[in-house]
Amino acid sequence: MASLARSGGRKSGSDGVISRISNSSLAKKGKAAASDVSYVTKRLLKSTGKAAWIVATTFIVLGLPLIIEMEREAQFNELELQQNSLLGAPPAQPAFPGPPK
Results as ranks from 00 to 15, higher is better:
52 A>N: 03
52 A>I: 10
52 A>S: 12
52 A>M: 13
53 W>M: 15
53 W>F: 15
53 W>L: 15
54 I>Q: 10
55 V>R: 10
56 A>T: 07
56 A>C: 03
56 A>S: 05
57 T>W: 11
57 T>K: 11
57 T>F: 11
57 T>I: 10
58 T>L: 10
58 T>R: 11
58 T>K: 07
58 T>H: 07
59 F>E: 13
59 F>I: 07
59 F>W: 10
59 F>C: 08
59 F>A: 06
59 F>S: 08
59 F>H: 07
60 I>G: 04
60 I>V: 14
60 I>C: 08
61 V>E: 00
61 V>A: 09
62 L>C: 08
62 L>T: 06
62 L>N: 10
63 G>L: 00
63 G>F: 00
63 G>D: 02
64 L>I: 02
64 L>K: 05
64 L>D: 05
65 P>G: 01
65 P>T: 03
65 P>Q: 07
65 P>D: 01
66 L>T: 09
66 L>S: 12
67 I>L: 05
67 I>C: 04
67 I>G: 00
67 I>S: 05
67 I>Y: 02
68 I>F: 00
68 I>P: 03
68 I>H: 02
69 E>L: 12
69 E>T: 13
69 E>S: 15
70 M>V: 12
70 M>I: 13
70 M>E: 11
70 M>N: 15
70 M>L: 13
71 E>G: 13
71 E>A: 15
71 E>M: 15
71 E>H: 12
71 E>P: 05
72 R>M: 06
72 R>Y: 00
73 E>P: 07
74 A>D: 09
74 A>R: 08
74 A>Y: 04
74 A>T: 01
75 Q>D: 08
75 Q>T: 09
75 Q>W: 10
76 F>T: 15
76 F>M: 13
76 F>W: 15
76 F>I: 15
76 F>P: 15
78 E>T: 06
78 E>G: 01
78 E>C: 06
79 L>V: 09
79 L>F: 12
79 L>W: 11
80 E>S: 07
80 E>Y: 07
81 L>H: 15
81 L>W: 15
82 Q>P: 06
82 Q>T: 08
82 Q>V: 05
83 Q>G: 09
83 Q>T: 09
83 Q>L: 13
83 Q>H: 09
83 Q>I: 15
84 N>F: 03
84 N>I: 03
84 N>T: 02
84 N>W: 04
84 N>R: 02
84 N>Q: 07
84 N>C: 03
85 S>W: 04
85 S>N: 10
85 S>M: 09
86 L>H: 00
86 L>T: 00
86 L>N: 03
87 L>R: 06
87 L>N: 05
87 L>Y: 06
87 L>F: 04
87 L>D: 05
88 G>I: 00
88 G>H: 00
88 G>S: 03
88 G>T: 02
89 A>H: 12
89 A>M: 12
89 A>I: 11
90 P>M: 02
90 P>Q: 00
90 P>A: 01
90 P>G: 04
91 P>W: 00
91 P>N: 03
91 P>T: 02
91 P>L: 05
92 A>I: 04
92 A>V: 08
92 A>W: 10
92 A>K: 11
93 Q>S: 09
93 Q>F: 14
94 P>N: 03
95 A>M: 11
95 A>V: 08
